[in-house]
Design a protein around this nucleic acid. Sequence first.
RNA 1: GGGCGAAUAGCUCAGCUGGGAGAGCAUCGGCCUUACAAGCCGAGGGUCACAGGUUCGAGCCCUGUUUCGCCCACCA
Length: 885
Amino acid sequence: MESNLNKGYEPHDVERKWYRTWEANGFFRADESSVKPHYSIVIPPPNVTGVLHMGHALNNTLQDILCRWKRMCGCEVLWMPGTDHAGIATQNVVEKQLAAEGSDRHAIGRDAFIDRVWQWRSESGGQIIQQLKRLGASCDWERERFTMDEGLSKAVREVFVRLYEDGLIYRDNRLINWCPRCHTALSDLEVEHEDKRGHLWHLRYPVVGSDRFLVVATTRPETMLADTAVAVNPEDERYADLVGKKVLLPLVGREIPIIADSYVDKEFGTGALKITPAHDVNDFDVAKRHDLPLINVLDTSGNINENGGSYCGQERYEARANVVADLEMQGLLEKIVDHQNAVGECYRCRTAIEPYLSLQWYVKVGPLAETAIKAVQDGHTRIVPQQWEKTYFDWMFNLQDWCISRQIWWGHRIPVWYCEDCSELTVSREDATSCSHCGSKDIQQDTDVLDTWFSSALWPFSTMGWPEQSATLEKFYPTSCLVTGFDILFFWVARMMMMGLKFMDDVPFRDVYIHALVRDAQGQKMSKSKGNVIDPLHVIDEFGADAFRFTLASFAAMGRDIKLSTERIAGYKAFANKLWNASRFTLMNLEGFDPAAIELDQLELSDADRWILTRLAETIDQTRQTLEGYKFNETASTLYAFTWHSFCDWYIELAKDALYGDDPQARHRVQCVLFTVLEQLLRLLHPIMPFITEEIWQALPGSRTSASIMQATYPDGAELPIDRAGAERMELVMDVVRAIRNVRGEMDVPPGKQIAAVLDCKTAAAVAVLQAGAMAIRQLGKVGELNIGVGIARPEQAATQVAGEVEILLPLAGLVDLAEEEKRLEKEIAKVQKDVDLFSKKLANEKFVANAPAEILEKDRGKLKDAEEKLAVLRESLDKIRALK
RNA sequence: GGGCGAAUAGCUCAGCUGGGAGAGCAUCGGCCUUACAAGCCGAGGGUCACAGGUUCGAGCCCUGUUUCGCCCACCA
């Protein structure tokens, strides 16, 4: 016997070979002129600086499963790939390069720096795209986009100008989040808060014209240099007499007023709050109410500036230490209390951010959010799992205006020009050469760039050619589904919703499927610093892409984090190997077989055939349903169970008799069924395991209607003969086999040893079923002499088991001793007795009988009857054994 | 401070609109049976976190408690 397949499955060459073939033949290509129904997904564009991590692997595996499945279902599928220019992250990478060369971006200048970034991108950017290919991602790579592409830049300009014209973009001078290391403003979302142990310093401010002190509590003593007032709660009797007076600000010598404002919490600290309007958001608001001056004591690097007097030039934490020391020396430090509070950090470099007063551009999100909320409320976009809707709404309802300007160089430059002559703004889709107000040529473009997420927000339509009314948009917008992790629900999903609705007048996607985050086996977030990162590429090397994908799919239950372990992946590698070997077996036995001759309805199918075909039909049904509902883990386990436990464990074993026998008709019949089941199974598995299924599918005999399994149709079970009665008959045969195996196993009968069996049936129908299945019983139960009948002659000493209406009697002679069988029976009886007790108690309950649905009652009555009958048989058998002892 | 989620076998997790607790791995026993030892056959293992409640019936629904995890938030 031979087959074209190697003995064990070796993924590497197979993966490389088929991926190349698919790509070279354009199988990933989407055709906008197709008349087929559309299915489209835009990839969450990974950062151009990115390397494939587990999050990407999961995210893209799920997308690929959907895309391959929908393609096979007859859809015209567009999976739009690309990368994100990742402003700050990418700029940081290139700045590090420059630093290594002893240079920096200011030394080489803006234009040269931008050139360097592009150079970096062409050399080492986008390696993640190659890595996605190793995963098997079937993106339409010919359409690959980059958020800094010309087309996408045009879209960005268009959106900026239109939002400006609609009054939804404005410039304002406010306290923003400033990163002193990146030297840029950040949106609220880009600031991460982490609780840290710190201190609360109690400082004494001398009250002018008295010998009293007003004690303020602060977490940031160095900012006292910029205090312009001290505030107390108007209800606070302790300080009522001080309101309107002044304190002398220590170290600085400035007199500042004591004011009353209800913002101050009497209970916190001392109840007196130093007001530092230029360095605290709340203080800023208080200052506005009381018309207080703003004093900024920090520069853009977080050092004290010239307003900080003698502390000028000191780094902020250095200044803090010095301020505290100086106050202490002057007896103005009352005490230091331990205190925990949340410090805002830059999400890119973890530097503590400063609230910093500056002029920035904002998007007014109110009106945009309103439509985005309504779209979800009205069901135009469905969030799956639905629990995330609440999070989405909560965030949308509390949205602050979005700060979109960044003081970095790498990104979409803000299309605004300032006139030196009339100081008006020119906001333009094209690069402006003159002021749109006075015509002056003396204009300067804004030096800032846009938040990276501004261009990402346009991704679903900018990648499809917008602002042109392209055929791609026509065919594929709105997209069918967005697959993403919840970590970017706010950053990205919410903003795409707003922009899509604003500019396309329709939601960007029908479904948003939110998947879990991947963690390590201990449930920790994977991170380089923790050293617990599992590299997807190593996993692919070691276990193969298919095993990896299957693992991810089977872990992708909704609403829970994924704890990934390599043990689990190894298990699915074994699964791939199992499929491989089952295929080898099938191919070995299909020599000279022509699948074109298969006509299932012309064959005299055995119960085993009916059973496996019916099981296949059920599997098809479940597979389609679970994929439709994004229940990837259920898809995986359905297919796993069918492949291993139905097809391999039973059907292949059952098939051997006919395959090795000398009845050509039986052989042909089994070949037809084997081929049918394997071929459809491969198609069912293909979305999850694209490589191995293609390799095997191509090795099948006969010719296919399509060149690749990718283009074959997804099974729908239409042509399968579903025969539940036949399947049930087979289940009885299987139960008998299991019962025989159980006794053999329990009594340690060597597997090689043949035994005799007597099957005493209650009905002639059962006899017929078992006679039809006699060969299976002999083969799988290793039974030699087999007698089947109603009220048949029974052996004197026998081990007894019961399967439905069949008593199974295995003559003990020479096999085991009576004591063994007695023990086994006692155990079995105890088990069945429990069932009898349970159901008789249940059915004795009048309320249960009165209230439970008839269907349940009937089921339970049947179960009780079965258990009682089984119990009687086993007891009788036990009595006999005891009598014989 | 608000919100969300989790707690089920030794481990990792499924468990649908409430109807006799499941899988994989691990463990134990037996097998190199002509697709597969990356395998085959069998077995053991659970007070479904705790306390109440609703119900004929609760892992599932309700209330409270405990322990973890995450997200959001301008109390110095």
